[in-house]
């Protein structure tokens, strides 16, 4: 039982580690594309946290089947929030990439220190 409880926290630990790995790329790497990749990893970690919270023991995906009594469903609300967030995430990511492309055209580089040096 003790082991199972620890397993239950594993999702949160993975969230913590993946989040910080993404953050590390954002603060340490100087390549702008790498920073954006780090940002999307960070974002995915947050998605994992939300979806972890929606799970109910013995539950199924929240699709109601008629005539089946006493069904247990996982929480649909975090799923809705994350579903829309994923699509919004990719469109904002594309916006960031578009800016990086323009920076490359103007400065000839996408390394942060070289851009700051050129200014």
């Amino acid at each position: 039982m003790k082991l199972l409880e620890l397993l239950g926290y594993y999702n949160y630990w993975v969230f913590a580690v993946v989040l910080t790995v993404g953050l590390y790329a954002v603060i340490r790497k100087r390549n702008l594309i790498k920073k954006l990749i780090g940002l999307s990893i960070f974002q995915s970690a947050v998605f994992l946290l939300y979806i972890t919270m929606d799970k109910v023991e013995g539950g199924t995906a929240p699709i109601i089947q008629k005539g089946v009594p006493d069904q247990v469903f996982s929480n649909p609300l975090p799923q809705v929030l994350i579903l829309t967030a994923i699509v919004v995430g990719v469109s904002t990511l594309a916006l960031g990439l578009a800016m990086v492309v323009r920076i490359k055209e103007s400065y000839g580089t996408i390394e942060e220190h070289e851009i700051l040096g050129a200014d």
Binding site: D54, A61, Q79, I86
Partner: peptide, 11 residues
């Protein structure tokens, strides 16, 4: 695995 079929499809 965490029962979020819609989100899995989107991701």
């Amino acid at each position: 695995i965490l029962d979020a079929a819609d989100v899995a499809l989107t991701e």
